[in-house]
Simulated scan of single mutants.
Amino acid sequence: MTNLSPVTNLRCTKKLLDRLKLPAKQSKPGTPTASTAKLGDWYATYLPLRPKHLVLAISQRARLAVLFPAAPLQTLPARFLEAVRHRLEALCISSEAIEQELAAMGEVQILPTGADRCRATMGTMTQFLQVIDYSQERQEHPEEIALYLGRYLVGITGQRDYFRPNNVARELLDPATVLEESRYALQLCVTIQESDPPIWRRLLVPASLSLHQLHHVIQSAFSWKGCHLHEFTIGEDDAALTYGIRYQFALDLDGGPDRSDQTLSLFRALPEVGSQLRYVYDLGDYWCHEVVLEECVESEVKWPRCLAGERCGPPEDCGGIGSYQEILAALAGGSSPVSQRELFEWLEWAGPSFDPTAFDLAVTNRGLSYD
């Protein structure tokens, strides 16, 4: 019996084949007609975007998307494999599972989409292209866009089932890690630093949540509106790494976070009880939240829950914790540099129902259930 060589079919649209300026290779004798790796065949197209032209490739089995620079087109097969590696690393898939998948991918064969193309995958590509157009307007980095596409709900033609490509890829390639993360829930205490009295929330969240998902949980728990940039920091001093949304314009200026906050799960970000990280919302007002892991419990929690808390979250755009503390002092009739006129204008803006001591656990959990 002949051993078949590992191969990956990269099925390219006519637009991409025309750019490659070479006829699509036919399958070689002795190679399988289908890809040998777990993610199956890949479908690719050419995107003439600015500032860089890109290639979008989507795996047939998981609908996982990778985005990488089109040039130089002569080295596209090798760079495609490297883009897949980076994409799987961003999903926190174990290095062993990544190496196994890349070995199973073997040689990349350039093929046309053909009459036997997977129409469902091509339909997903059309959906993704619309999302990419919108993300380009926001100047998001290609890596950030690909990670977002992985969280996009994808449907199966003729069925009511929907799935997220990131989840399917992790289940296909690294089921042991997925199972381990799904067994645990993390109890976190989140406190706005320098708030006096403390403004805090105790949260119970699935360990599998990414930092990006935790961002949305904190936003809801403190009634923030998500109007500004945010950033997570793990580690101290020279060893510190920042995570957030990566925008192309910021990276071009050597700014922005080190990594996307979609690439790290809480299970890895907070490895033991007592571990902590810093979450900053609004890089101007600089609302700094301390996030501490209080307990790791075996529990199949599906949705975040707030267990306790005190005081309402500060209003948006009130100048940061220092200005907010001065406003609270003025409201209490104490010494404060805030004038009566400024206080009146602030109360008019914050609303007559503003109460800095208010906290409603039921309302907070209703908000979390919708996120």
Rank of each mutant, 00 (worst) to 15 (best):
T364W: 03
V280H: 00
R164T: 04
L347D: 02
G256Y: 02
C318M: 07
S353M: 03
S223Y: 11
A24R: 01
A70I: 10
E326P: 03
Q74R: 15
A308D: 15
N365C: 10
R87K: 14
C288E: 15
L229E: 09
T31M: 09
F267R: 06
E96D: 13
H141W: 11
C189D: 09
P257D: 03
A330I: 00
V190R: 01
E326K: 04
L328V: 02
P315K: 02
E272Y: 13
D116S: 14
D355A: 04
D355C: 07
L361E: 04
A115P: 01
K25I: 06
R164I: 06
A185N: 01
E180D: 11
T357G: 01
R202K: 15
Y279E: 06
Q100S: 12
R63D: 04
M122L: 15
A103R: 10
L67Y: 05
S353V: 07
L4K: 09
S35W: 08
T13L: 04
E144F: 03
V131M: 08
T157W: 07
L283Q: 03
L173D: 01
R305H: 14
Q130R: 10
N166S: 14
I321V: 15
F359V: 08
L54M: 15
P69G: 03
E326F: 06
L64H: 14
T121L: 01
K52E: 15
F232G: 04
T124N: 06
Y324K: 01
V338M: 15
K15H: 09
R85S: 10
L173Q: 04
L10P: 04
P32I: 04
C189N: 14
G322Y: 10
S336R: 02
C92N: 12
I145T: 10
T31Q: 12
A350T: 10
D174L: 06
T75S: 13
A221L: 08
E101A: 05
Q130A: 10
L111F: 01
K14V: 13
H141N: 09
D237A: 15
E99T: 09
G150A: 02
A24D: 05
E290L: 14
A362P: 01
L17Q: 05
T157D: 13
A329M: 09
T357H: 11
R85E: 13
H216T: 08
Q60M: 08
D174K: 07
L173A: 00
L283K: 00
Y46N: 05
L16K: 02
K28T: 07
E342V: 00
Y134H: 12
H230K: 00
S95K: 13
